[in-house]
Amino acid sequence: MDRQRLDKWVWHARIVRTRADAAALVSKGRVRINGARETSPGHGVKTGDVLTIALDTRVRVLKVIAFAERRGDAEVAHHLYEDLQPRPD
């Protein structure tokens, strides 16, 4: 698999609880792909894309490194992305 729907990837990566929440997040314009705002939940993401996701309390910057066929636990989800934000000390 070389591409995946944006809403599906956000859901598989466990950024939100449901796929409907992922679609709503994208539709509201709260997700950027490589700096460009995306409002289509069906837009494809590919390996290497950098997603900036504005959540209620914080912003996450994630680099897509893999895809999943099914939604797994948190450990599996963590292998789908690289967190590009520096950790506070």
Rank of each mutant, 00 (worst) to 15 (best):
residue 69 E to D: 14
residue 66 A to E: 01
residue 22 A to F: 12
residue 65 I to S: 06
residue 88 P to Y: 06
residue 48 G to R: 12
residue 30 R to H: 05
residue 25 L to H: 04
residue 61 V to P: 02
residue 76 V to K: 15
residue 32 R to E: 13
residue 59 V to M: 09
residue 81 Y to R: 09
residue 37 R to H: 01
residue 3 R to C: 06
residue 26 V to L: 03
residue 85 Q to S: 12
residue 55 L to H: 06
residue 21 D to W: 09
residue 42 G to N: 13
residue 68 A to L: 01
residue 75 E to H: 12
residue 31 V to L: 05
residue 68 A to Q: 12
residue 74 A to K: 09
residue 50 V to G: 07
residue 47 T to P: 05
residue 15 I to R: 07
residue 66 A to P: 04
residue 23 A to W: 01
residue 37 R to I: 15
residue 9 W to Y: 15
residue 17 R to V: 05
residue 8 K to M: 13
residue 1 M to N: 04
residue 46 K to G: 15
residue 45 V to N: 09
residue 58 R to L: 07
residue 82 E to T: 10
residue 34 N to V: 12
residue 69 E to A: 15
residue 67 F to W: 02
residue 75 E to D: 13
residue 52 T to N: 07
residue 74 A to H: 13
residue 33 I to N: 02
residue 43 H to T: 14
residue 7 D to F: 11
residue 74 A to I: 07
residue 22 A to R: 05
residue 67 F to Y: 04
residue 5 R to M: 08
residue 76 V to H: 07
residue 9 W to E: 10
residue 2 D to Q: 14
residue 41 P to T: 11
residue 63 K to R: 15
residue 21 D to A: 15
residue 6 L to D: 04
residue 79 H to P: 00
residue 25 L to A: 07
residue 37 R to V: 15
residue 5 R to C: 07
residue 57 T to N: 01
residue 57 T to E: 08
residue 2 D to T: 06
residue 58 R to K: 14
residue 71 R to I: 02
residue 60 R to H: 00
residue 41 P to L: 03
residue 43 H to C: 05
residue 67 F to N: 04
residue 30 R to N: 11
residue 24 A to H: 04
residue 40 S to V: 02
residue 32 R to V: 01
residue 34 N to D: 15
residue 57 T to A: 03
residue 65 I to R: 10
residue 86 P to H: 06
residue 81 Y to A: 11
residue 72 G to M: 10
residue 3 R to S: 12
residue 31 V to D: 06
residue 33 I to S: 10
residue 26 V to I: 12
residue 18 T to W: 12
residue 79 H to R: 15
residue 28 K to W: 02
residue 7 D to W: 11
residue 83 D to Q: 08
residue 29 G to F: 05
residue 52 T to Q: 14
residue 26 V to H: 03
residue 80 L to N: 09
residue 23 A to K: 08
residue 37 R to M: 13
residue 19 R to A: 08
residue 12 H to L: 03
residue 33 I to P: 05
residue 76 V to W: 10
residue 58 R to A: 00
residue 5 R to V: 04
residue 31 V to Y: 07
residue 66 A to G: 11
residue 82 E to L: 14
residue 27 S to G: 00
residue 37 R to D: 02
residue 4 Q to G: 02
residue 25 L to I: 11
residue 70 R to C: 10
residue 51 L to K: 04
residue 63 K to P: 00
residue 31 V to G: 11
residue 10 V to A: 15
residue 8 K to G: 08
residue 1 M to K: 03
residue 57 T to L: 03
residue 24 A to G: 00
residue 69 E to L: 14
residue 84 L to F: 09
residue 75 E to G: 03
residue 32 R to Q: 11
residue 68 A to M: 09
residue 48 G to H: 09
residue 75 E to A: 14
residue 81 Y to W: 14
residue 58 R to S: 05
residue 77 A to Q: 10
residue 8 K to A: 15
residue 50 V to C: 07
residue 38 E to D: 05
residue 6 L to T: 11
residue 79 H to L: 13
residue 55 L to T: 08
residue 15 I to C: 05
residue 39 T to Q: 14
residue 74 A to E: 12
residue 60 R to I: 02
residue 55 L to V: 00
residue 52 T to M: 12
residue 49 D to Y: 07
residue 46 K to L: 07
residue 56 D to I: 01
residue 87 R to Y: 06
residue 12 H to C: 14
residue 33 I to G: 01
